[in-house]
Amino acid sequence: MSKKSKAGDHPAIEAHDLVKVYGENRALDGIDLTVRRGQVFGFLGPNGAGKTTTIRILATLTRPDSGTARVLGHDVISERDAIRARVAVTGQFAALDEDLTGYENLIILGRLNGLSGAAGKQRADDLLAAFELTGAAGRPVGGYSGGMRRRLDIAASLIVTPDLLFLDEPTTGLDPRSRSQVWELVRQIATAGTTVLLTTQYLEEADQLAEQIAVIDHGRIVAEGTSAQLKSRVGSGTLHVRLLDGDQRPRAQQVLAGALEGTVHLAADPLALSMLVATPADGTDVGRMVGRAMIQLAEARVGVAEVALGQPSLDEAFLALTGHTAGPTAIDHQDVSA
């Protein structure tokens, strides 16, 4: 945490009761949000939950119907130039030029950010090198892979180091390797002192990157806390067990329900059972708990073919936090506003 931006008393983001309505769709239905400076804040929710609309309002691209928001101490409605000078936006709604090369995109954005010709070239070269894009610098962005495009997108947002960076679904559609590269970049940017607000549909991503997570659904924040706090509400994941003999399923169900204190779900497969595993409040780790349960199954002479413990999916998280799944319910507001 070497170079925190100028210490101000006000948080990086302070939003109160933001409402935005598109036609019939209440994209935002009273969002309250506080993001501390230097923090990586995760905004977790399904498509159409209101994540992008919130970012657009905070980046001064969309005006809220009601509510107030201050970004880096400036009002999003009356002081948008002061905000624009200090924040950067990346994401699908603020795209790069596909026809231009990676280098040209950075040069253009450098000039628009007030860099001189020489400084802009130097900055573009440095960023391309740091983001491992030097080899692709002369090619039009339209031909880039998803991972390269996302890296260039982030590089472009660092042409002038922002005090606050909005990352709209930085890894949606990326393969696992590109995803971990982007995660590493986000960590480095945060370490260097830039506050990051990222939206994501992936619980794992929020868990990996964000110190503080807000879960958004139907334009409302339904839960907020650290990753550990949310996990204790969501559970550690789902335990899947496959038996050797389907006749033993009732006994397995009984043993697991007792050992892991939860409801065991009987899958359509007559050999399979699954259950949500809660993170133990006393700090016992999940592995030990599951291990004990497996020993109890063995002692009850239940033959086990397979055991797997999966991360809780967004659906499971939503089920736990909101009582319903994160299905594609709301219309994607981007279609309306873009």
Binding site: K3, I159, T161, T191, A192, T194
Partner: peptide, 12 residues
């Protein structure tokens, strides 16, 4: 490297 880059890019 990125730390240095970010520190160097603060002129506005």
């Amino acid at each position: 490297q990125i730390d240095i880059l970010l520190a160097a890019g603060r002129s506005r």
